[in-house]
Simulated scan of single mutants.
Amino acid sequence: MSSDDSLSPGIFPAGPDALLVRFALTPCPAAMDAAQVLAARLDRDPPAGVTEIAPALVSVLLRFDRARTSRSALADTVLDQARAIAAQPPAPPAAVRRWTIPAAFGGENGPHLDDIANKLSITPKAAIARICGDDLRVLSIGFAPGQPYIGLLPEEWDLPRLTDMTPSVPAGAVVVAVRQIVMFGGASATGWRQIARSAFRTFLPDRSPPMPLRPGDAIRYVAAPESEIDMLARNSDGLGGAKLEVLA
């Protein structure tokens, strides 16, 4: 992950009724924070005509009603806000919600945990403690329905992706790379390193809501035995024993 924290906000068209506000070309921490701040501000006070606000790692997508506003008018309004944030980057907004999610670490549930611990010159137990010790944040939802990108982990966790793809990790797999965590809602190929498995399903089309996580949510993992995860996976709600706490 790039350590260049310079921000250069720009506006780009995205289809007939959307625009993208981007703070940087690479996922530097300052750009991630800026995208979260802008998305939170726009969510609290959306410009006229905006129908959807979708934050990504270093950008925010805005969809708008062309009968109520124009791309140029919206771009002028939003670019002013983005430039103000880039000029004096504030801390990301405080989390409104926290999910506590059980996960089984290591062994068959996390076949890359020992290797990661070795790379970090710590024990697997210490690596688990670091993952579970602090709140992380949902930085973005994407790639697959409901799939979260969670972070940021400390700088020493800036681990590259694997050189070869793992053909399949199971639903609920917790994988890491480039200071981030991804939880897979279904079995998937990946180049990220699997450290754990949860029974949390990030997307179930018949559940309300189908995608329970939101950008900006706090995530706290708690270590659990494999037998508990297997039992939680049988629950029809697909939440895998996760608990939601409203913080504000």
Results as ranks from 00 to 15, higher is better:
28 C>L: 01
232 L>R: 12
32 M>V: 13
122 I>P: 06
66 R>N: 03
120 L>R: 14
73 A>F: 00
111 P>D: 14
87 A>I: 01
128 I>W: 10
40 A>G: 03
113 L>F: 13
163 T>N: 11
21 V>N: 01
144 A>M: 14
138 V>Y: 11
151 G>R: 11
125 K>L: 04
24 A>V: 06
5 D>K: 01
15 G>F: 07
76 D>W: 02
81 Q>W: 08
191 G>L: 10
29 P>S: 14
168 S>Y: 02
213 L>I: 04
40 A>D: 13
74 L>K: 00
169 V>C: 08
42 L>K: 03
181 I>D: 04
61 L>C: 08
133 G>T: 00
129 A>V: 03
5 D>R: 10
26 T>Q: 14
11 I>Y: 01
136 L>F: 07
188 S>Q: 08
30 A>K: 12
36 Q>K: 08
163 T>Q: 12
192 W>I: 08
203 F>M: 11
28 C>S: 15
157 W>E: 02
68 R>A: 14
91 A>L: 13
31 A>Q: 08
15 G>N: 09
21 V>D: 01
160 P>K: 12
9 P>V: 07
220 R>T: 08
12 F>D: 01
127 A>V: 10
197 R>F: 05
66 R>G: 00
60 V>N: 00
158 D>L: 06
187 A>M: 03
207 R>H: 12
45 D>C: 00
192 W>S: 07
227 S>I: 11
18 A>D: 10
176 V>C: 02
94 A>N: 10
133 G>W: 04
205 P>T: 09
204 L>S: 05
219 I>R: 06
45 D>N: 10
42 L>P: 02
199 A>T: 13
163 T>W: 03
189 A>S: 15
3 S>Y: 10
149 Y>A: 15
34 A>P: 02
159 L>I: 15
138 V>K: 02
92 P>F: 07
79 L>C: 10
125 K>S: 09
161 R>E: 13
15 G>D: 08
165 M>R: 15
246 V>C: 09
192 W>G: 08
202 T>V: 14
61 L>T: 12
194 Q>G: 09
22 R>T: 11
83 R>M: 13
166 T>R: 14
42 L>Q: 11
39 A>I: 05
141 I>C: 06
13 P>D: 03
106 G>P: 04
88 Q>N: 15
47 P>I: 03
238 G>P: 02
36 Q>T: 05
51 T>A: 04
12 F>P: 00
180 Q>D: 00
221 Y>L: 15
61 L>Q: 11
228 E>N: 05
55 P>D: 11
235 N>T: 05
48 A>C: 04
83 R>Y: 03
168 S>R: 15
99 W>H: 09
95 A>S: 11
86 A>P: 02
149 Y>F: 15
171 A>N: 01
93 P>D: 09
166 T>V: 15
93 P>N: 13
130 R>E: 14
127 A>Q: 05
204 L>E: 08
230 D>T: 11
173 A>C: 10
221 Y>V: 01
179 R>D: 11
51 T>Q: 06
199 A>G: 06
26 T>K: 13
78 V>T: 12
147 Q>R: 07
107 G>V: 04
118 N>V: 02
58 V>E: 08
176 V>I: 15
212 P>M: 09
20 L>Q: 08
235 N>R: 14
235 N>P: 00
44 R>W: 01
68 R>K: 14
